[in-house]
Design a protein around this nucleic acid. Structure first.
Lengths: 206, 206
DNA sequence: TAATCAATAGACCATATGGGGTATTTTTCG
DNA sequence: CGAAAAATACCCCATATGGTCTATTGATTA
């Protein structure tokens, strides 16, 4: 059974080349191609493809927004971004929107076809460099200035526990909890719970 | 120039097989192998390798902790986890600790060698299934129950702004800000700023 | 050994926060 | 059009929070 592919790409030439490539390759068919997300959203429901190749820079709705909306309606479809943009924002926003793969437009035809199969089989096709950027985004800040006890308490701050609850859980007085929290705030350069929680999560301090 | 590899693996047989595989392959050398992180931390400084293959289940310090400590001291080293564990926690904790690749022990020898080269050249080797899990972790919850205004206010809550500051920024009364925040708490099923901030960040509501 | 840091505990006090209401106007949508 | 949702604004009140300050004990380390 062929993998059915749709293309959303505003450059007519690229769109036709892609369509031709896919249709002429055994194991793949491309019945649908669109030059913007709006038309795709209208038409696609009649015959949803299994894989969508999506450009980012499109007239009207961006490809990222397009993925968000289409993925909402058709969660089974796998999306591969196919774009010239390789800034971090484009990459991470695409993944957040629901894309499963991210390729640059200079990807060789053979790799592109292989990537369509990979994403269809449950993988996440992307270049080595992009994979590394994604993996690196998990990297925890190595310089956590908080003591073990402070981390313990910060963890509970993030849960929304108040002084008394934390004190009871740790079998210490509320005064001590306050003292720790004040130290945490000093070390993190914040002045409120909200900021502390944000920093704790964003900098992976807990 | 050969890529120098070190192995940290407590199973003697696997360790020797790996060493043999690497040393007998042109382009790779394995001068160092350890059966726990502690000895690696002691010895490795004399001749830091370029790539480390790290098991997770080790006597004493876990491979994940080992990566954290080694990566801190030797940021240039690329770490590939080589393990039988494939639960989400092991994967994400490894990446947070500083690993750049994640392979299962049943990875074929050719793929393993290729992966060492990939990570050395700045990629992030891993199986298709694991790549997909990592990519999927970015996926935003599609059902954001908050109105635009509420998101606006939640964003500022996360900044640590208090009622008055938010009110001034949005040119509305503090009462209105409070009303919005009460609605936000209801919709998110939380009862405090800290919980709201956590939910906002974790569920990518802003 | 002296000094520093972490953990513990407490006091005082102004202000921010959250829970409970009610009410009007505008926008959105079936 | 009419209902529902969103945005606006206000009330009361108990409690949580954060700033500033002091102080003791045990561990770590320079």
């Amino acid at each position: 059974m062929d993998i059915s592919v749709a293309i959303i790409e505003d450059d007519r030439e690229i769109r036709q080349l892609m369509t031709l490539l896919i249709d002429s390759s055994p194991g793949y068919t491309c019945q649908q191609s669109f030059n913007d997300c709006e038309s795709a959203l209208e038409v696609i429901r009649k015959d949803p493809p299994e894989v969508v190749l999506m450009d980012i820079d499109l007239p009207g709705m961006s490809g990222i927004e397009g993925v968000r909306l289409l993925k909402q309606q058709y969660p089974e479809i796998d999306f591969i971004m196919l774009t010239i943009k390789e800034d971090d924002d484009s990459i991470f926003d695409s993944l957040c929107a629901g894309a499963s793969g991210y390729l640059l437009k200079d990807t060789p035809p053979a790799t592109l076809l292989e990537s369509i199969r990979v994403v269809y089989e449950g993988g996440a096709p992307m270049s080595a460099a992009i994979a590394r950027r994604i993996v690196s985004s998990f990297r925890t800040a190595p310089d956590n200035p908080l003591s073990a006890r402070e981390q313990e308490i910060l963890r509970r701050l993030c849960e929304g526990d108040n002084y008394k609850v934390i004190a009871d859980q740790l079998c210490i007085s509320g005064h001590t909890v306050r003292a720790h929290i004040k130290n945490i705030y000093k070390k993190l350069h914040v002045t409120s719970r909200a900021e502390a929680v944000r920093k704790a999560i964003n900098d992976k301090l807990i």
